[in-house]
Design a protein around this nucleic acid. Sequence first.
DNA 1: ACATGAATAAAACACTTGTTTGAAACAGTC
DNA 2: GACTGTTTCAAACAAGTGTTTTATTCATGT
Lengths: 225, 225
Amino acid sequence: MIKPLPTRERLIDIAGDIFGREGFKAATVRKIAEEANANIAAVNYHFRDKEGLYRAVLEDIFAKAFQKFPSVPPPGTPADPEKRLLIFIRAMFYRFLSREGWGGLSGQGKLIAREFLNPTPAFDDIVETYIRPQKNILAAIVSDVSGGKLDPDRIISCAVSIIGQCIYYAFAAPIIEKIAENLTPIEKNLDFLSDHVFRFSLGGIQSIVNTLHENNGIIGQEVHP
Amino acid sequence: MIKPLPTRERLIDIAGDIFGREGFKAATVRKIAEEANANIAAVNYHFRDKEGLYRAVLEDIFAKAFQKFPSVPPPGTPADPEKRLLIFIRAMFYRFLSREGWGGLSGQGKLIAREFLNPTPAFDDIVETYIRPQKNILAAIVSDVSGGKLDPDRIISCAVSIIGQCIYYAFAAPIIEKIAENLTPIEKNLDFLSDHVFRFSLGGIQSIVNTLHENNGIIGQEVHP
DNA sequence: ACATGAATAAAACACTTGTTTGAAACAGTC
DNA sequence: GACTGTTTCAAACAAGTGTTTTATTCATGT
C-alpha cells in the first residue's frame, strides 16, 4: 500500500507536466486541479496564485534533476578531462530524457525548453543557481580537453556547441521522431546518443584548436548572401 | 512614398511576431489586430478564424525564408562537399537570426522553435515540404564529407548534431545572452558563429569516422548512473 | 451616376479564465 | 467532547476570450 502524496506535491508534479505540454497561459488551473484530484481552490490556497504554483514547479524540477544526475564525478574520483566530458554529456541526456529525469512526465522537459525560449521572471534565479555553474563546469572541461590552447570566447563557443547538441535532442524530439525514427531520444538510445555527442564534440574541439591560425571569415568569403 | 501593405499582409507579419513571442493561446486576436492597425473582425474575415491566421503565418514564414536563404549553392556553381556544408550552415544562421530572416520580427524565430517543441497539426505539411528535404540535403553533404564511410544512422546523428548547434543559438538566445554576452547571436556575429559551427562539425564528422571501429558503449562503461 | 461586391467598423454574444468566498470536513490537543 | 487551526469543497464573480452580427465605407466597372 503506497501512501498517496499530499495535495501540494500532487499539484506540483501534475502542473509540471501540463505547464510544459501546453505553456503557462494555455494550461488551466482547472485541468491541473482535476488531473491532480484536487479542488480548484487548492492552487490558490497552497501557492497563492497560478504563478506561485509555476515558481514552485520550476524550483522543484531543477532541484530534483540536478540532485539525481550530477554533472561531475563523485568527490574523490579522479577523472581525466575526456572522461569528465563524457560524464557531463551523459548526465545532461539522462536529466532531460530518462524516465527518472524529465522524460517521465514528458512535459517537464518541455517546460524548461520553454523557459530557454521565453524566460519568465521566475527563471532568473534558476539561471544563477543552476545554469551558470553548469556553464563554468563545462568551460573548465573544454579548456582542459583543448590543452589550454583556446581563448575564452572559443571555449564558450565550443561549450555552446556541445550543450546545443544535447538540448536539441530533447527540444526537437517530436520532429526527430518524424524524420529520423531510429534516433528517437528514448531511454534505450541515451547511451548511444551520449557516446555520439561525446565523440563528435571531441573531434570538434580538436578541429577548433587545429585551425586556430586561420583568419576568421576568410573561408567562403564569396559565398552568398 | 511607400505603398502601405494591405490589411491581410499586415496581419500575417504582426501575427507571426506575436504568436512567436507569446504562443498561440496567449496571443490574442485583439492585440494582433490592434498592432496591425486593423479591426478585430478582420482576422475572421480574411482567415476564417484564429487558427486560419496561424496557418497562413506558418506557410508565409517558411516560404519567404527558404526563398531568401537557400541551403544549396545556385545551380551551375560547382562546390566541394566542405563548401556545401558551410553554405548550408550559414544559410541556417541567416534564416534564423538575420534581420532579413526571422531575426527582424524576432518572434517569428520563436514561433518555429515552438513548433519543434509542440508541433501543431498545421506543421505536418511544413515538415514534409521544407524540413524533410533539408534533412536529405544535409545528409548527402555529411555523407560526402565523410567520404562515404558512414552508415545511415551515423550520418543522421551527425546531421542532427550540426542542426542542433545552429538551432540552439536561435532557440536559446535569451539565455546565451545572459551567460555569454560576447556570443549573442546577432547580425554581426553570424559569420563568426557559422564559421565556428562549420569547423567544429568538420572535426566532429572526422572523429566519428575515425572511431568507427570502437565498440559502442564501451567507453566509460563504469560511469554512473 | 449607379450598382455590385469586397473590405472595414463597432457592438454584442457566448464562453472560458483565474480568483474569491463562506461553509464544511478533518486533524490534533487540552 | 469541545476547541483550534488547517485543509477541502462547491458556488459565484469579474475580467478577458474568439467569434458573429449588422451596418457602413470603399473600390470598380458599366
